[in-house]
Amino acid sequence: MSAISERRERERAHRHQLIITAARELAEAEGWEAVTTRRLAERVEYSQPVLYSHFHGKDAIVSAVALDGFSELAAHLRRARQAAPELGQSLRAVCRAYLEFATERPALYQAMFILPTDLKFASTETPPPLRASFDEFVSCFRPDNERRELFAEVLWSALHGIAVLSESGRIPLQGQEERLDFLITRIAGTSSPAPGHAS
């Protein structure tokens, strides 16, 4: 590749990331309804045709934002897991980190899990950042647990439900620790169930 081609590639990658960042900032400030190609073109000071040369419409932009989000989520969960290396502690730390991530970045979380995207989950085409995020949950279960991927999937599903219901005000934010206790006890079996309850 020539020096000119390399420079053009760098410039294109820079523009691409600039559009993703602008979309994310606009969504966090005003919600995803405010993210239009016209608004983004104004914000990044490129023409709409230049924007379309990078992304074929809003869904493609949302997918790119979501992919960025999964890279961040994987790193966030990894830090939490590594800071609490014991299995029971690491699971709680990862669960808590996941709920923090969803609460602190609501528009990003929407792009990742609620809005339409072309990202493939649980398939051979799953992008590495998605798999890396899921693997942080899997790593919290004992390696000799043959069903640890199932455990991780059910746990993630429950956390997603808690995140969405909390964000929409359908369940109160207080009580998160009790919910985590219940999940970790029932799914992971890493602590004793409450007295009077069958395990």
Rank of each mutant, 00 (worst) to 15 (best):
G189W: 10
L150C: 04
E86G: 13
W32L: 02
V62T: 07
L130R: 10
T126D: 00
P106E: 09
G31L: 09
L99T: 10
H76M: 01
S191L: 10
Q82V: 02
G196A: 14
L183T: 10
A83N: 07
D68Q: 09
A41S: 14
A83Q: 06
R78D: 01
C95G: 07
L91M: 04
A23G: 14
P129R: 03
V62D: 00
T103N: 11
D181K: 13
Y46S: 07
E6A: 14
S168K: 13
E153R: 15
M1S: 10
F134P: 06
G161N: 15
R12P: 06
G161A: 08
W32M: 03
A60H: 06
R78Q: 11
A22Y: 12
Y46M: 13
T117P: 03
Y98K: 08
S47W: 00
I4M: 11
R179V: 07
A158F: 11
F55P: 05
L180N: 03
C140P: 11
S53R: 09
E167T: 08
E33I: 02
R170T: 07
P193A: 11
S71W: 03
A66L: 14
Y109R: 05
G161F: 15
R43Q: 06
L18D: 09
H160C: 04
E28W: 13
S90Q: 12
E177Y: 12
A194C: 12
S168T: 14
A34T: 05
S47T: 07
G69Q: 04
Y109L: 01
A66C: 13
R79W: 04
F137G: 00
E136D: 06
R179M: 14
F141H: 09
P193K: 15
A64W: 10
E72L: 00
V50N: 12
A41N: 12
S2V: 11
T126N: 05
L67K: 13
E42V: 00
